[in-house]
Amino acid sequence: MEGRPLQETDLIEQARRGDVTAYGDLVRRHQEVAVRTAQLACGDASEAQDAVQEAFVKAYSALGRFRPGAPFRPWLLRIVVNEARNRRRSAGRRSGLAVRIAEDRPKGDAAPSPEAAVLANEARRELLAGLERLSHDDRLVIGCRYFLELSEAETATALGVPRGTVKSRLSRALGRLRSAIQAGVGR
């Protein structure tokens, strides 16, 4: 009845002109990745939603500065990351990764043998434990690239660093993760 859904660029343009309904559509399109990003950035699942809500409001105010045609998602995620970081800092705590591994296998995964499932699950927990031993920045860059599946360019925009920095920071983070896992195994 309403015709085909509007393209994101149309929604952005309408929102820039003050159409909050169009902006509501943008919120719905990006809220999931925004909350996950905030969770990685502030290390607190409940704080993440509040941070994202605030970030969306700030992003609306900043739409006048958004460059038409630029990718919206990383631009938004940068605001989300900043908001989530601020909350983490003001809370004055050292946050963890704050994610849990699902008990059920992801959709589409074939059922492994019971033994293989146990081993794979153990390997995942080992990996997660290694991540927990990393610094917040290391976890964030790894999370953006591998958990949120952001591209290097998107990660760079979201974290507010040059693309080359993402590459080098990721490489160093993986090296430290490798060491952390091996140290954990050796215990």
């Binding site: 919120v27 809220q31 699942a45 939603q49 994610v99 591994i101 992801p106 995942r124 790894i142 591998y146």
Partner: peptide, 23 residues
């Protein structure tokens, strides 16, 4: 890590649009 990403249990995100618009 990518495989682990598929296993992460992310919290369910409610529709934030109404709250955002109200704010």
């Amino acid at each position: 890590l990518a495989e682990l990403g598929g296993w992460i249990e992310w919290p369910v995100v409610p529709d934030l649009s109404a709250r955002v618009i109200a704010a």
